[in-house]
């Protein structure tokens, strides 16, 4: 057959990078288990310090997966370098996509936090804001979640490999919740739930366990945050509590940050 005459095409090079984050989204990739083996046959996982001692700090990549927000100057520099060396850059998770839970510090006095938390504040070098990757470099695709969803990650990687548009729906959590046949916790129990304004992808995990959605996938397309805030207030949720709900994991996303600020203003 002369198969040696057909050298397999070079596998696309994948790099996995981490900025300010908890590593949970990278763990989702490791958690792919069966699919990870198949994936490693299709792509050359050239840089993935979380999973392998084989790294390529200065190499070039077809796809870079970037976890974490920019919270320190060195992260900004590293991000610029990653972008420069990567054909496609995909942010993975709430930190990289909207600043993460560490964006809670935005607008506050960070030096005060540093003094209060660390025994030797002098060792701490940090920016006073946590910002998403898109605030610094162009992003080709954003994956939501805290952590990201395994199926969405595989879908994006597959789509990039095959050359099609990733089938990631920008609809609400309600759509997933209803497809699963869950009983709406907001309507049937008066449970505060952010699902109507939150991007799908988690499979309506919290409502499945009778909890309201707390928004780790961030705002959906056209998030009606003001309408939901008004409704949750009718259900008895105070403004300060509403602000905290919008400020949590995806609080750096503009739609949620704006609604939180409105509610804080009202509370003050």
């Amino acid at each position: 057959m002369g198969s040696e005459a057909h050298a397999p095409p070079a596998r696309p090079r994948l790099g996995v990078f981490k900025l300010a984050s908890c590593d949970g989204c990278q763990l989702t990739l490791i958690g792919c288990e069966d699919e990870l083996l198949a994936l490693s046959e299709k792509v050359d996982i050239a840089h993935f310090p979380e999973a392998s001692s084989r790294t390529d700090v200065h190499g070039r990549f077809d796809v870079a997966l970037v976890e974490g927000s920019v919270s320190a100057e060195w992260q900004r520099e590293e991000l610029l370098s990653i972008r420069e060396r990567s054909k496609l850059l995909v942010t993975i998770g709430a930190c990289a996509t909207s600043g993460g839970v560490q964006a809670l510090r935005n607008g506050k006095d960070v030096s005060e936090f540093v003094r209060a938390v660390y025994a030797s504040p002098a060792y701490i070098s940090t920016l006073d804001r946590s910002t998403p990757v898109s605030a610094h470099v162009s992003v080709d695709y954003e994956l939501r979640g805290c952590p990201i969803d395994k199926h969405q990650l595989l879908e994006v990687l597959t789509a990039l490999l095959v050359g099609r548009r990733p089938a990631i729906r920008d609809e609400s959590v309600c759509m997933e919740c209803k497809r699963r046949g869950n009983v709406c916790v907001l309507v049937a129990h008066g449970e505060p739930c952010l699902g109507p304004v939150v991007h799908a992808g988690c499979g309506a995990l919290c409502p499945r366990f009778a909890r309201g959605c707390y928004g780790c996938f961030g705002p959906k397309e056209s998030p009606a945050t003001a309408a939901l805030a008004a409704r949750l207030k009718e259900l008895g949720v105070p403004a300060a509590d509403l602000a905290r709900r919008f400020r949590s994991i995806s609080g750096g996303a503009p739609a949620f940050a704006d609604e939180a600020a409105k509610q804080e203003l009202e509370h003050d």
Partner: peptide, 13 residues
Amino acid sequence: ASRCLACGSCTSV
């Protein structure tokens, strides 16, 4: 539209 969440619950049920 100032009240609608565009969540799709209505069409789903």
